[in-house]
Write a protein that binds this DNA or RNA. Sequence first.
DNA 1: TTGTAGGCGTTATCAT
DNA 2: ATGATAACGCCTACAA
Lengths: 338, 338
Amino acid sequence: MEKSVQPTINDVARLAGVSKKTVSRVINRSPLLNDDTRRRVEEVIADMGYVPNPQARALALRRNFLIGLIHDNPNAQMVLRVQQGLLEVLRDTEFELIVHPVDRGAPEMHDDIRLFLERQRPYGVMLLPPISENDELALLCASIGCRYVRMGSAAFDGPDHMVASNDREAVRGALAQLIGMGHRRIGLIAGPHGFRSAHERRSGYEEAMAAAGIDVSRNWIAQGDYTFESGMRAGERLLDLSPLPTAIFASNDEMAAGALHAARQRGLDVPADLSILGFDDTSIASHLWPPLTTIRWPIAPMARAAALKLIGSADKDDDGALFVSTLIRRASVAAPGG
Amino acid sequence: MEKSVQPTINDVARLAGVSKKTVSRVINRSPLLNDDTRRRVEEVIADMGYVPNPQARALALRRNFLIGLIHDNPNAQMVLRVQQGLLEVLRDTEFELIVHPVDRGAPEMHDDIRLFLERQRPYGVMLLPPISENDELALLCASIGCRYVRMGSAAFDGPDHMVASNDREAVRGALAQLIGMGHRRIGLIAGPHGFRSAHERRSGYEEAMAAAGIDVSRNWIAQGDYTFESGMRAGERLLDLSPLPTAIFASNDEMAAGALHAARQRGLDVPADLSILGFDDTSIASHLWPPLTTIRWPIAPMARAAALKLIGSADKDDDGALFVSTLIRRASVAAPGG
DNA sequence: TTGTAGGCGTTATCAT
DNA sequence: ATGATAACGCCTACAA
């Protein structure tokens, strides 16, 4: 075993023959320090294996070295990819990730988050959709003096506080391709009301259809809530239509999987009888049969960018960096009529 | 906006006309306190909306109110379910969850974890498989004086430090049912070497076959590494056999999905030509076509139990509580020739 | 460039 | 049963 107690700043100071404050300056990379002194102190630090105590720093600084991830767990895959992206940046820094899920819809959510921020005093927090769309939360963070970055399907905050994909444009482009293949009766399984992503994706669909001069019949649009079951039910409704749609765009992969399920239960062949397009490229997409054509948005890069913004080492240049979604072509889409 | 600064223990003490220490005693539910005093102080606390500062407590107590989750991300679904289970218990306590993934195989993993424990001084940590199987890590936690609970496929530590499922028995039971349906040529897609869960599940398979007096041919067992692709390749190898197996047990759902994929590419009908059984009941299982029969182990209850052990409010009774896995019957299994 | 004094908000020790 | 005082380990302000 090692020494039972860890060395403190005092031990380092004593051994190096300097004051605590000097050691503190070394730790914090203060510019006003004699190079000799710095070197000497750094040596002692390395020798003793000294590590600054984050709790003491947090107390003195009134700010913790924790990055909070606040979310309402809309999608396990997404949450995990975000965690991975954040942690990639946080690894090898002094920051740690603290996960704080909340219950959207619960009346106490706001207070819960406030308590979390006031107690833990995280260095910064990342807000995931859909609660990232809540402006009150952003204001709350700002009023408490906590850095924050929101993740979303469109830029609804300043660049310092936002990492955004462009769902609308991505959908528009993907649907233009479907239309280019000859599809005209294209159904939409829309996401739940109140979700910005659902809104953006629907807008992309509508814009693409309008651009192609296709009149969207009201019953070509079925409402889902981003779950497999809702996708299945919505798919059934669309497959009750006559004539049948030749393609369905589902606003996320879960619902696309549900629609695929519905199609198969009716004996339809995908993609010969019906093309299906999803959104998100979660792992389910590639594991379906047939593998799902879908739109992938760059979650991990967005999470990494968010982490960099939060810990303050983001290049100022990259504010303009766009996060572009890409169409992942798999076997669930083909030209109509097989 | 509110008062810009939060009240401290001093403010409470002053207003209540007592000393800091008395307030501290109220916070910490010290038994030696006059009821009147306690009530008075509690009132003031409620009035002021005072919340103890965790950083200061951490400094004084040399221990944080954070629960660490250390894992090597074997499976996104699993990690997330564990997080949910832990957080269910931690919600409404003063504890927060701090996620610390590591890189199994990296030589610095041990030091990385040591640094994490020494710096953050978490109140306790939960170790997920497969790194939970590493006894050195458990020793490390113990030597640092950090509580820990390990999650695993079998009990390989004392009850205070372990939440365990019983994979071997679960597999044995499920395979007995397969055999009862008439299957005899049952292939196994085994998990990677060095994983206790892979070992246990394989043992369950072997025990069930032995119990039924079936000689397991060496090439009925294909090796995978818990990924979809490895499952696909392993499935192909098993489907090269002649005569064909009538059933395949894959040691996790991902590999079962891969095997299903392989079967379909050969034009086999599942379950008519081939039954497939998975393990884990991740979300992929229910979304496959046909939906996958699989074994579910109670991750969330196990995580909740672990959290209770960590924060020290576990009933002493429940040590004997078994976490039983259940067979989830879906459409991927049928009688052979079916 | 470096050091001293004091504070951050809590708990522990030892009185009373 | 309660309180004064000194930690806990670090940082800020100010002084030298």
